[in-house]
Computed example of a mutant assay.
Amino acid sequence: MYTACGSAGRIVSFKLSPGDDLEQGLIEVCKKYDLKNGVILSAFGSLQSAVVKNVIAIPNVKYNAGYGAPIELTGPIELIGTTGVICHTDEGEILPHIHITLSDHSGRGYGGHLCPGTRVKITVEGAIAEVDGINMRKLMDTERNILVFRPEQM
């Protein structure tokens, strides 16, 4: 287990436009305000497409699980909710870990780990809170060959 304690700092509000990539848009918001440690407070709106991936069983790997292939959904899709953390590498690259909840026109629900290619239909609006006192790093887990979240006290 890794833990660290901090406090909420600045709140950055945003509105993304039609055609914007949701993940890249959030990264650009963070770059604009030099926000490298944060949490998504809220984000909602409409999407023309969504790309998510979900955890699946994978035998003979650590934890016997990992992410499956991306699932592509076509819209219009309602973005009901967004949750996640804003992290960074030691080199300063912003790497958010974000999950989204979706609903289609029939009311069916979907969700998962946000992937590139998720595009805004009309608007996505929301807010990100900067976290003070916690270094929200992503470090390489050599056993799984993936970057993992590692909060550290500043």
Rank of each mutant, 00 (worst) to 15 (best):
K53I: 11
Y2E: 11
E91L: 11
L79Q: 08
A65E: 14
F44S: 15
K53P: 04
L47K: 02
K32E: 06
A129N: 04
G107H: 09
L35F: 05
S46A: 14
V29I: 12
C5D: 08
I98D: 01
D90H: 12
I80K: 15
K53M: 13
M154H: 07
L102S: 05
L22I: 10
H99C: 08
H113E: 07
G117Q: 04
I100T: 07
A4T: 01
K15T: 08
M140P: 10
P18M: 11
I128P: 00
K32F: 03
T118C: 02
T82I: 00
E23M: 05
G66C: 12
K36R: 12
G84H: 03
R10K: 15
I128C: 00
P116T: 09
M136F: 03
E91Y: 07
V85S: 06
G66V: 06
A127W: 01
K15M: 07
H88R: 13
H97K: 10
A8P: 06
I86N: 00
P59C: 06
V131I: 12
A50P: 11
I80M: 14
H105E: 08
V124C: 08
G84N: 07
S13C: 07
G109D: 05
P59K: 03
V148E: 14
D90V: 14
G19M: 12
T83G: 10
L102K: 08
H105A: 13
Q48P: 03
L26F: 09
G92D: 13
L102T: 01
I58F: 07
E152D: 04
A57T: 15
N37V: 02
I80Y: 06
R144V: 11
I56L: 05
A69C: 13
E23N: 09
H97E: 12
D34M: 14
Y63H: 12
R119G: 02
P96R: 00
E28S: 12
E143G: 07
L41M: 14
R144K: 14
I98P: 00
H88C: 10
V131N: 02
D21F: 03
M1K: 05
N54G: 11
I86S: 04
G117A: 03
I94A: 09
I77F: 03
N64A: 15
G126Q: 00
L35S: 08
E152F: 01
P59Q: 09
P96M: 03
L73E: 07
V52G: 04
P116H: 12
G126V: 01
L35P: 03
R119K: 15
R144Y: 10
E93Y: 10
N60G: 13
I11M: 07
A4S: 09
C5F: 08
G109W: 02
H105W: 05
L73G: 07
K31L: 13
S103F: 01
K15G: 09
H97R: 13
I128E: 00
E93C: 05
L35M: 11
Y110H: 13
E125L: 06
V55K: 13
R10N: 15
S106Q: 08
G38K: 00
A57V: 11
F44K: 08
L114E: 02
A4Q: 03
H99I: 06
L147V: 10
E23Q: 08
V12T: 13
S106E: 08
I98E: 00
L26E: 03
K138C: 06
E72W: 12
G126Y: 00
S17L: 10
N54K: 14
